[in-house]
Amino acid sequence: MTAYLTRRAALGLMGAVPLAWAGVPEAKANSQLGFDELYASFGVLGLEFSEKVKQLSGQTTSIAGFMAPPLKAESDFFVLTEIPMALCPFCSTDADWPDNILVVYLNRQQTFVQFNRPIEASGVLEYGPWRDPDTGFLSLLRLRQASFKEV
């Protein structure tokens, strides 16, 4: 028996395709974050993270800024700053933590760039106090499994 597709059957199939796609979740796009969106306010206990940071936590996020000079040439992390910075404020306590930096932990070693060259870093966003067990450095906000590119 030979099967023929009638016009009515074809139209019915075409109408069903969008319904089938409606159940497929859309892939999450890389979210953008700006330095002015990191913190909600300066509360009694210091910096309070913004709702956007809390919502993006655990997701791949991008932020543009500048690379602070690394502490050593073969490091797998750097500090991303809002403005070019010749010195790294990375060893501060969490009470003194600047509101315009975050730490970027690279997923692979990359060649660092000059501190005054704009870059975009992308990685999985994490927030909250964390002390790196290898270096002893403290961070309040960081990107993990990250990479960067010049922009």
Rank of each mutant, 00 (worst) to 15 (best):
R131E: 12
P18E: 11
V103M: 12
F137G: 15
W97T: 15
P25M: 09
V113Q: 09
A29M: 08
V17R: 07
L125E: 11
Q32M: 06
R108I: 06
A27Q: 12
D96F: 00
A29E: 13
K52Q: 15
L140W: 00
A22T: 07
T135K: 07
I101P: 02
G34S: 09
I83A: 13
K54E: 14
L38P: 01
M85G: 04
P69I: 07
E120K: 11
F35I: 01
N116D: 15
E120R: 12
C91H: 09
L106F: 05
L125F: 05
L141W: 01
G34D: 09
T93S: 15
L45R: 13
S122D: 06
V79G: 01
F77M: 07
R131D: 05
L141H: 05
P25W: 00
I83G: 05
V79N: 02
D132N: 14
S92K: 09
V113N: 02
P70M: 08
G136K: 07
S41Q: 12
G23V: 04
E48P: 03
S139L: 04
V113A: 15
I63G: 01
V103E: 01
Q114V: 09
E74V: 10
A68F: 01
Y127V: 02
A40H: 08
L140A: 07
C91T: 14
V113H: 06
I119D: 02
E48H: 08
P18Y: 01
K72D: 14
L33K: 04
A73H: 08
D96Q: 13
D36N: 15
P133W: 03
L33E: 00
L141A: 04
D94F: 02
W21P: 02
G46Y: 03
V113K: 07
Q59S: 10
V24Y: 06
P89W: 00
A64R: 11
S62P: 02
F66P: 03
A68V: 12
K72S: 15
K54I: 11
P98L: 08
E51N: 13
E82Q: 14
D94G: 10
G136P: 06
C91Y: 00
G34C: 03
T111F: 00
Y105G: 02
L19Y: 01
V24W: 05
K28H: 10
F137V: 15
F42E: 14
